[in-house]
Amino acid sequence: MDPMVFLLDTLVFVGIFMILTLSLNLEYGFTGLGNFGKVAFFMVGAYIYAITIQFGLPFYISLVLGAVVAAILGALVSLPALRLREDYLAITTIAFGEIVRIIFKAEQAIAGGVWGIAVPSIFQDLNLSIRMSVIVNLLLIYCMVAVIFIILQMLTNSPYGRVLRSIREDDEAVAALGKNVIYYKVQVFMIGSAIAGIAGGLYAQYLRFIEPNMFLPLVTFFVWIMLILGGTGNNKGALVGALLIEFISRGSRIAKDYVALPVDPHNVQFVLFGILIIILIMYWPNGLLREKQIQTVPERRIAHGDSVSK
C-alpha cells in the first residue's frame, strides 16, 4: 500500500476511535457508568447508516438516524440495569453487544448476514484518487471529532457536568440534593450511544463495506484501553489515548512485516495489550492527563471587606 495512504488510513481510524473514546469518557469518565458494550452502539450506527443510505438518503440523515436508533437502544438496554449495581450494567451491556452481533449475523435479510453489506461512498461522484478519497473522509471525520469534542467540553464543564461528576462519586447523595439521578444516567447513556452511533456511520461510510466480524467485543476493549491510558474525566486525554493506542496497534502491524518473530505477532499484540491495561490499572490508574475542575465558578468578590482568612 502507498505509505501515505497507510498513514492517512491510520489517522481515519484514530478519528473514529477518538469519537468512541470521547463517548465512553462521558459515560464512565464523568458519570461513572461502565459501558462494556460500546461496540453494540457503534455497530448499530454503522448498520443503520449502511441500510438507510441504500435508499438514497442524504448521508447526514443516515448518520443522524444511526445516532437516534443507537440512543433509543441505549436507553432500553441501560434502563433495567441503571437502577441496580454497576456490575449489572456491565453484564447487560456486554451481553447486548453479543446479541446485536448475533442478530446481524443470523439475519441475511437485514444486511447480508455473515456476508456483510456494501455501502455506497458519498464521494463516488467526485471521481477521487484513492489518496484524495481518504483525505476527504479524514476531513469529514475530524470535523465530527471537533464538533463532538466542543459539545462535550461544554456539557462537562458546566452545572450539568457537575451533576454528572457528583453522580460518579455518590449517586444516592446526589438524589438527596434534589437531582433526578436515573434521568441523568439514562440521558448520558443515550448521548454516549448516539455518539458511538455517529462513529459507526462514519466508519461504514469510510470502509464502504461492513460485516458482523468487524464488531467484536475487542473494539469495546480497545476503547477502554484508550480511555484509561489517556486519563478518565479528561476529554483531551480521550483524544490522546485514542491516538497513542491506534498508532501502537498499527505500528506493531507494520513491524511484523520487518521483524521475523518466532511467534504470531497478532497473539503477542493482544497479550501485551492485556498486560498493559492491567499494569496501567495497577500502577497508573489516572492515566496521562488528569481530570480538570469545572471552570465556571467566578473568583470571590471581595464585597464585604472582611474576608475571613483563617
Binding site: 457537575r162 461528576r165 457528583s166 462519586e169 455518590d170 447523595a173 481530570e291 475542575q293 465558578v297
Partner: peptide, 9 residues
C-alpha cells in the same frame, strides 16, 4: 461528599 470535587462544587 463528592471526594473528587472541590468543596466549592
Amino acid at each position: 461528599l463528592f471526594f473528587r470535587l472541590p468543596v466549592m462544587d
